[in-house]
Simulated assay, not measured.
Amino acid sequence: MMKKFTINSYDKQFNLKEFKPDDTAELSKQDIKKEYDKLQEKFIELQEVFYASKKYGLLIILQGMDCSGKDGTVKKVLTGVSPNGFNVENFKAPTPEELGRDYLWRTHNKTPMKGDITVFNRSYYEDVLVTRVHKDIDDETAFSRFREINEFEKYLVNNNTIVLKFFLNISKEFQQRKLENRLESPEKNWKFSEADLKERKFWDKYQECYSDVLSNCSTKEAPWYVIPADHRWFRDYIVLKTIVKTIEELDLEYPLIEGNIQELIQELKKN
């Protein structure tokens, strides 16, 4: 089933219209409940050995339109995760210092150390999305950056950083319902920004730019996963399942303690 949502062909033109935001693979929330609970338990176990082994870093990239559920994915999928070795980085509009550097500088600085799991809530892909939509860069620059990003991710992978990239795919109708809910529910007013309405006007252009990202920046080293996100429970299930499967395949083990165990126990008893 995971192959259905994986883009693993480089330089093949994809269109987001080919992917259904409301897809659930003919499953119901009840169908996956037991497996989901087991996946959460497994992830907590795996994170501990991942942190202890210090062999790899894991970078999880979450991209999507406003209301696609990037914050919710972190909250729901990573429930129970140990704060040791876990970080979430949010990337907003760049500061003057960041604008004075190359566009990858501020994100490279936040990539995970070995043993750590870091989530990028938005990422360096903003520099080929929002910048392109608002014509801060031209198409030639964008496609040049696609190649640079591919090389950057290859560099990370070659240095034992695993890169998991999730595009949370929602429909325009779903986004409208979420924005209306933010306006109509006093406890959710704080989530609403007039900028959301402004960006919504560029929906079609964003879809076009995301399609180019998926077509040009999904590589063997760092493929994109297009996650149907109109149904939150299915979004969480597929993301969690992908993370668990990825860590399981690393065949990690706890590091051996230095010294003779029995001698250390006897020394401890003396004190």
Rank of each mutant, 00 (worst) to 15 (best):
K3E: 15
K4G: 01
S9W: 00
E18W: 07
D22C: 08
E26S: 15
E35G: 01
Q47S: 10
E48P: 00
F50T: 04
K55S: 14
L62R: 03
Q63I: 02
D66V: 10
G69F: 05
G69D: 06
D71P: 07
D71N: 14
K76E: 14
V81W: 04
V81N: 07
N84T: 07
A93H: 03
T95W: 08
P96E: 12
E97F: 13
L99Y: 06
G100W: 00
M113A: 13
H134Y: 09
I137A: 04
I137Y: 08
T141L: 11
E148N: 12
E153R: 06
Y155F: 13
V157T: 15
I162E: 01
L168H: 11
N169W: 08
K172I: 07
K178R: 15
S185Q: 14
P186Y: 08
N189W: 04
K198N: 12
E199D: 14
E199K: 09
K201A: 15
V213A: 13
N216P: 00
T219M: 02
P228N: 11
A229M: 05
D230Y: 03
W233D: 09
R235H: 01
Y237N: 01
I238W: 01
L250N: 06
P255S: 10
E258W: 01
G259M: 06
G259T: 06
Q262L: 10
K270Y: 07
K270E: 14
